[in-house]
Amino acid sequence: MVPLSWYIMLSAVVFSIGVLGFLMRRNLIMVFLSIELMLNSINISLAAFSHYLQSITGQIMVFLVITVAAAEAAIGLAILMAFYKNNPTIKADEINLLKG
């Protein structure tokens, strides 16, 4: 039998890799992809908990996370398109509109 903690560690490692990508990459598409990666790592742990605790709630949560992820990707990429129309760059360190 595979212990629950293995799944959790896998999830933690993948999440950290997602964080790494989010912090390192310049290309905004890759930044989004990293966010998806982080969401997936959470899904793994949720599914694992669901299995080991014999509760269906974890799977429901995964389902909801996937839905929200889809919405997030759609909106995020739409923002990216709208942004690209105005400033033809999608490099994370060149976008400094937050500066007042």
Partner: peptide
Amino acid sequence: RFQWSWPVGLVAA
């Protein structure tokens, strides 16, 4: 492909 601050990101991750 990476930002200048990528080592910091690596440490954080």
